[in-house]
Design a protein around this nucleic acid. Sequence first.
DNA 1: GGGAAGTGTTGACCTAGGTCAAAGAGCGGG
DNA 2: CCCGCTCTTTGACCTAGGTCAACACTTCCC
Lengths: 235, 235
Amino acid sequence: MTIPVADVAREARLVRGVIANLALFSGVAPGHVSTVARQSWALPVPRGAVIARRGSRLEGAFALAYGFVELALRDAHGVERGLRFVAPGQTFGEATALLGRACKYEAIALAESKLIVIPAAALFALMDHDARFARTLLMTLAQRELDLVAEIESATLHPAEQRLAGYLHSLADPGDCPAACTVRLPVSKTAIASRLDMKKETLSRLLRALVQRGLIAVKQREITLLDRARLKQIC
Amino acid sequence: MTIPVADVAREARLVRGVIANLALFSGVAPGHVSTVARQSWALPVPRGAVIARRGSRLEGAFALAYGFVELALRDAHGVERGLRFVAPGQTFGEATALLGRACKYEAIALAESKLIVIPAAALFALMDHDARFARTLLMTLAQRELDLVAEIESATLHPAEQRLAGYLHSLADPGDCPAACTVRLPVSKTAIASRLDMKKETLSRLLRALVQRGLIAVKQREITLLDRARLKQIC
DNA sequence: GGGAAGTGTTGACCTAGGTCAAAGAGCGGG
DNA sequence: CCCGCTCTTTGACCTAGGTCAACACTTCCC
């Protein structure tokens, strides 16, 4: 099976384009971006595919071109706990790839997706050539650390209802809507529940409770925030 | 009140010595270590002191010269969840200091301690001069990220007994003792309980259960692991 | 040596959230 | 339009671990 030359070129442009637009590479010289892009490649995955599993080695850090990915922990009996959703333009796996360690979590495509794989070696090389990039990467990891601490805080110090209220609140644009506004859940309620560290049944019951209190209205994945002030106050 | 010149010099030597011995600074040229040390200072704190509280700005990253420090989350009503114990020679607060963000957790001295404060500016400067240091710092943050993920995993996917068994197991030297060996809890059982995300009552009950099963023997803070194999198997 | 504070233990009871089971709802394909 | 999916809802019940309250042991300080 041969691949047409035109497709190879289009793919290379895609890889370079996605990398150039990552927050991680803002301020990096175009030449350096191209060097990294040449070492990277695209990885198309169908919906439901397991991109990385616990214990596997990552070939590099991942950037999401399009689609949607969930990072999740899973125990031996299939119980799942979502860690983070990855949206297009975001990256994941930097820490694992840079350390060359076995992956601690699973990465699952929640929608048909295209990923860019950036080998750790390319990142190390760029770090040596561009101190500013090194600093950006460092700041990204530092931010991730704070996010994880916040995650532990909400999971252990806040009850399920507060976590849900906080999540709903975070879905809406901050500047937006003084009164009511409608948001759309990015993924299935089952996935949301796992992300909020609760079972789907619990999520369903909590949503119903909020509806009955007149705080929200739910129509499948569309959720209307009717009283954002009170919602914020819950969390 | 004046401070004798000899004391100032001794203090400066302490600061430099502690920094030079940090894993973070291994491989850094002595001259660079001195430069960082000159910008850093020692901070003695009594047992029980709050070194950093939620929302405070850190003056820099902290290294522990001697003593013992606990990093913990605390909610509005005083409920505490321990994040990490910091032993001499270890550091904390890098991410918060580098990002210049408000601190997300509390740092409390569990024993009379001496800390070295290393301003973020000193770290940034060294990063620019020493790419290898930048890489070490990056790896440290990456490792911290994986540790936090492991923390979330154990807190949400493992029951309290497994967490305790895992902790006890981790206290013993890996190469050590084929059969029974005795370890000493580094801090009060109350602090251990918070670190393991359970209440002190629960810890007490679980310890008793392990004693009754003949897995351990407890004598105040001395714990004898009688059946390390079975203990490992629990977690 | 005796009380006061800090630290641990124990028992009785409670509750947030999980489990299990069954039944609706959307939805893409034939 | 019906079939067979996957996703969601709902009710009945359960349990790990938290809460409360009392008491015991350690320190250590006067």
